[in-house]
Every structure is written in structure tokens, then in C-alpha cells.
Amino acid sequence: MSVNVVIPARHASVRYPGKPLAQLSLPDGTRQSLVRLTWEAARAIPGVESVHVATDDTRIRDHCESFGAQVVMTEPACRNGTERVAEAARIAGLTSGIIVNLQGDAPLTPPWFVEALVAAMTADPSIEMATPVLRCDVTMLGHLMDDRLAGRVGATTAVFDRFGDALYFSKSLLPYLDRDTAGAAPPVWHHVGVYAYTPAALAAYCDWPAGRLEGIEGLEQLRFLENGHKVRCVEVDPRDAQFWELNNLEDVARIEAVLRARG
């Protein structure tokens, strides 16, 4: 089954304007942009046929083309990354297999996270959309709690049923717990911002009305749930690899620390 990756990248982020072009320090002393690091992570996924960056900004386009990325220009009216990926897939003619939305702020995404989504959708053709979830360790839970206490909107958590289908996603910490009751294996699942779709489900998404909860949380995947479509949560194994997305300026240091640890 063919797998094509699209990286949505917009300049006009409310919390972090120009985020795709943010420069991160690498262990060798050089610096690379967030979007280039994400593009390189996408290219490291085994079996991927193509990687496109989808943007509406000429600065991002020019930067990505400078290091050899394929770029699809999309409309500024796209309301979220999924809509941008859907438009890019239509323009690029991606009509078969699996389309993966690897968000441009997730350069630490290990390739096996995407491989797990592809494996799940290959094994069960009824899955229209799949996304990874990662059980929080004590360190990750501490970062989540610190963000909440500081009033920062950070990573997303997921709750799902015994079949793995999502019940809800939130930027709040779900389920409720505190540091004293969390224990060594807290029952909190960090939602990793990667999505795999069938082309039909991705195309249909843009025809559905935006959901009330989608608007409140600012989470695009809730449109699937609010329109009666399941989202399969696929548990992934970090294999001791630290994972974090760049949501706030404070996350730059966290990601750079992981890059240093990886060498």
C-alpha cells in the first residue's frame, strides 16, 4: 500500500508566528529550521513514496525549495492542518493508499510511529483515520503539568475505549490526576500529532461542518468524532526515545535537549 506524507506548515501561528522557520541548534553546532528537521524525519520513514510540504506562505515555500523539498501551495483559507493536507493531496494527485499528516512542529517523531499507523490501517481496512498515542512516563507527565500550571497550552491528551477508538482529545490533562496520585505509570496518554487517513476520509473532512468542540479545543481531529466517524488510537512504543512537539517558545530548549541526547 502506498504511503505519502504531507507536512502542513503555516507562518501565521497565533502562539508562535513563523514557527516552521524557527532555527534549532544541533549537536554539531549548526542550526536547522523546524520544518527542515520535520521533512528529514518524514524522509526517514521506511516505505514512504513522497514527502510534500503544504504551505500558503512564500517564505516557507522558498526556504523549503532551497533544501530540495517538494512544496504544494495551498489557500490561506484552510482552517487547520487537515484541511491543508486535503487540499495539497488533491493538487498533488494523491488518491490512493494512505496519506499521512506529519505536522511541521514534530521533528522528533520516530519513523516507527508512522509505521505503526500504516500497519494498523493495513490490517484493518475499515479504519478511516488513525493517530498515535504514547503513554506518559513521569518526566513527560511533569512537563504536561508544568505547562498547565504556567498557563501554557501544550501537548494534547487522548482517552479511548477498549477497542482503541477515541472517546475524546483535549488540551487539558485527561483523565484527572495530580502529582501525588500519578504513580510511576500514570494512566495518561499523550496524543502524538500525526494522522493517517484514507484518501476518501481526508477528502470528506472538508465537506463536514466544523465542530463546536473542535473550535473550543482547537483540535482538528475532533471534527471526525463530532461527525460520527471513528478515530483509531494506536499505541506506540517510544523505545526510550524522548518525544516532544514545539507548541511554545519554551519547547525549543526541550527539543534541542533531545537532539543533543540523540547525538
Score class of each variant (00 low, 15 high):
84 R>V: 01
163 F>K: 14
224 F>V: 09
103 Q>S: 09
77 A>I: 05
226 E>T: 08
193 G>D: 04
76 P>D: 15
230 K>P: 04
113 F>W: 07
126 S>T: 13
52 H>P: 00
223 R>V: 05
47 G>S: 10
57 D>W: 00
223 R>N: 09
125 P>M: 07
2 S>N: 13
79 R>S: 09
126 S>F: 00
110 P>H: 13
16 Y>G: 01
108 L>G: 11
91 I>R: 14
214 E>N: 08
156 T>P: 02
10 R>A: 07
189 W>Q: 09
49 E>R: 13
98 I>C: 07
1 M>H: 12
58 T>K: 13
124 D>Q: 10
22 A>N: 04
141 L>K: 02
114 V>C: 12
49 E>A: 13
114 V>A: 13
237 D>K: 07
20 P>N: 10
236 V>G: 12
96 S>M: 04
158 A>C: 11
43 R>T: 11
140 M>R: 14
215 G>I: 03
111 P>T: 12
218 G>A: 03
207 D>H: 15
58 T>G: 06
241 A>M: 05
194 V>S: 02
256 E>N: 10
162 R>F: 03
112 W>D: 15
126 S>D: 10
207 D>V: 01
119 A>V: 02
97 G>H: 10
139 T>K: 07
90 R>K: 15
162 R>V: 01
118 V>H: 13
3 V>K: 14
113 F>Q: 06
117 L>G: 02
124 D>V: 00
50 S>Y: 05
241 A>F: 00
72 V>C: 04
237 D>T: 04
20 P>M: 02
127 I>M: 07
228 G>Q: 08
205 Y>F: 11
227 N>T: 12
217 E>G: 02
145 M>V: 05
156 T>C: 03
224 F>A: 15
244 W>R: 08
182 A>W: 01
246 L>I: 08
70 Q>E: 14
212 R>Q: 06
63 H>Y: 11
57 D>T: 09
143 H>A: 03
35 V>N: 04
72 V>S: 04
196 A>K: 06
75 E>S: 15
165 D>H: 11
118 V>S: 08
227 N>L: 04
9 A>W: 01
210 A>E: 15
191 H>V: 01
214 E>H: 13
223 R>Q: 12
139 T>A: 13
114 V>D: 12
95 T>D: 15
157 T>E: 02
207 D>R: 15
169 F>P: 02
6 V>T: 05
215 G>H: 04
10 R>W: 09
262 R>I: 03
131 T>H: 03
170 S>Y: 03
115 E>Q: 14
119 A>R: 11
207 D>N: 15
4 N>F: 00
83 E>D: 14
134 L>N: 04
50 S>K: 13
162 R>S: 01
5 V>S: 11
111 P>G: 15
121 M>D: 02
150 A>W: 05
119 A>F: 00
119 A>T: 10
44 A>C: 06
140 M>D: 11
260 R>G: 05
107 P>R: 00
31 R>P: 01
187 P>N: 14
138 V>G: 03
225 L>I: 08
66 S>Y: 06
261 A>K: 10
190 H>L: 14
150 A>R: 12
198 T>I: 03
189 W>K: 10
236 V>F: 05
97 G>A: 09
5 V>H: 11
24 L>F: 01
79 R>Q: 08
239 R>L: 09
132 P>A: 00
256 E>Y: 05
60 I>R: 12
238 P>D: 15
178 D>E: 07
74 T>G: 08
